[in-house]
Design a protein around this nucleic acid. Structure first.
Lengths: 338, 338
DNA sequence: GCAATTATTTCAAACGTTTGAAATGTAGTT
DNA sequence: AACTACATTTCAAACGTTTGAAATAATTGC
């Protein structure tokens, strides 16, 4: 039980030398005598000296902390993205503080202010569904703290750094895959219209249809807010016209397919066995479904996270100018199951 | 673009008063004149003054950071537990740094050292599967930093603070529920034997059998390491003796039931439809399974996290002596589906 | 043996805040 | 006018580190 904390001063007194010698010895300054260094380092080891981060932070005017604001840790996209961030951050001497907004703007503002008070050296943020005003995030750049937007596209904010999945291309690939399998009636089940990706993905879908001379039908497009009721009502619409029943389905998100498939099964839809589905996600759980999607659009969240942190660190180190706004697109990959 | 950071000194110069007056005005000292306070607070607001946390931390000899080491963010138990921690930590002015060990002892040691260097004010840890030596965690207590073990029981470490699910009782309840439904042949599918909970849960199972005069058969007990192969081989053992086929199954973890159920279905087991399963977990996914478990043992991870952080903060505030080791058990709840 | 180098150590200020003690200002009392 | 009693502000040190400049010690050359 050591009451006196082991500081440089403490070591210096023990060794009967000055604080600066001790500091320089530990930091391996060339002007310090080898023998002195040895003595200091030995003593530091024996007494379990750990430099006080707060003091260093104060001196260096850095916190060595990177903040992440994201909607939710229950969504595997985000937890997987953290892997990419964490690893590279740690390697570069940064700690990561994660704050969840729960897709609530108020909570996002709170998180931002909290991280600002903590004087993070940089911020990575996946904005909430409802973020249209960016004042709480702009504060950071105004103070010279770089911000990288990732995973969700802040389209209202033109001047910012972004790392996004190439969701257009992912949806294009999926649609093309279905076309190649012979499908002519492919439905698109989008997410909430206020999420930009909904439209990017829709464009991927449309382009794939056009490029392959498959006629587009507006009856084959519907949107859901992710909740079960909304998904079922969208599905009802897609299957409303008996003259125009889809045989395949591209969904904004794999998880909404679960509700969709379950519903179609529950009503014993006559064409149920023909319907082939693909969604964004690649959840490990689909292995357990009786009628699983035939493929998944893997978004590579780890890579999205890794790109975000790499860019952020370059910005922190001023290797890239903070106003030289970057946009990085991370490719998706179609994973065919079975 | 403000190059000069807005500090107390900066405000003081602008206002032509001393740094200490500014500081005290912002902290609402009673000795400061009301009018002065107003002027200072107004100026602070206008110039977006944010107190420098590093300086405060240095002064207060606190980091206002709480570390969490846990195996994995992909496991919903842990992500849910974070909800409980985060909320209460934030309310008390603490930031949380989460570090994943990936159930790897080396990584856990690294994380511990990293958090020690960051001089966290307290640590919450769910140990890795392989942690038997606690030197890297004992460091904290030796420096007077309290540690709360949670979610996973560090049975090799007798003197420590613990917050654990009452897993014995959870398993007891589940077994009893099955008995009440008329089952006589209830199997127990445990996790890896090196995890203590495996045995606690087994004891819950056994006690429920005994208390209700259901005979025990060692043929109805098997263990898995969580991976698919291991689970299937355990299931094969449980169903090996045609004279003694189980009609119900209590599993260490809901997710292993997925592999189990899938396997039984795949081999078209004759009694498949009779078999009723229960596991620890309560995953939202089970809603999408065709043959879902009939009930789940909800472990209340949020509550486990909340209890851990509350205890930790009491320890930090010295409301409880660091050597007065506490053990808190959080109840499970049986959730019957359908 | 003494100046000129060079090697090594120490000084002192700074980072931004807090806080008890000391100083100053103001008003009230006699 | 001198004194007390407050109200208010400022001083100064401290938290633990870093780092350029200054001081000191040791070594070399002549």
């Amino acid at each position: 039980m050591n009451n006196t904390p082991v500081t440089l001063k403490f070591l210096a007194e023990k060794l009967k030398m000055s604080v600066s010698t001790v500091s320089k010895a530990l930091n391996n300054y060339p002007t310090i005598n080898e023998y002195t260094k040895q003595r200091v380092q030995e003593m530091a080891r024996d007494l379990h000296f750990t430099p006080n981060k707060s003091a260093i932070n104060l001196k260096e005017r850095k916190s060595h902390i990177i903040g992440i604001i994201l909607p939710n840790l229950l969504d595997h996209f985000f937890t997987r993205s953290i892997y990419g961030v964490e690893q590279f951050a740690t390697q570069n001497g940064y700690n990561v503080i994660i704050s969840q907004s729960h897709d609530d703007l108020k909570k996002e503002i709170q998180s931002a202010n909290m991280l600002l008070r903590s004087r993070v050296d940089g911020l990575i943020v996946a904005i909430s569904k409802h973020t249209q005003d960016f004042a709480h995030l702009d504060q950071f750049e105004n103070m010279g703290i770089p911000v990288v937007y990732y995973a969700r596209n802040p389209s209202f904010n033109l001047s910012c750094h972004k790392v996004l999945g190439n969701t257009f291309h992912g949806c294009y690939q999926a649609t093309k895959f279905l076309i190649n399998k012979g499908h002519k009636k492919i439905a698109y089940l989008g997410g909430p219209k206020m999420i930009n990706f909904t439209h990017d993905r829709f464009n991927g879908y449309i382009n794939a249809l056009n490029d392959n001379q498959v006629p587009f039908s507006s009856e084959l497009v519907a949107y859901t807010n992710f909740d079960k009721e909304s998904t079922i009502s969208a599905i009802k619409n897609l299957f409303a016209n008996p003259e125009n029943i889809p045989t395949a389905l591209v969904a904004f998100k794999e998880t909404i397919l679960f509700d969709a498939i379950k519903y179609l099964k529950s009503i014993n839809h006559p064409n149920f066995n023909e319907i082939e589905c693909i969604g964004f996600g690649n959840t490990s759980f689909i292995a357990y479904l009786d009628s699983p999607p035939i493929a998944s659009i893997e978004e590579n969240p780890e890579s999205v996270g890794e790109n975000a942190i790499k860019l952020l660190i370059q910005l922190i180190n001023k290797e890239i100018d903070i106003h030289n706004y970057q946009k990085i697109m991370v490719d998706c990959k179609l994973i065919v199951h079975g």
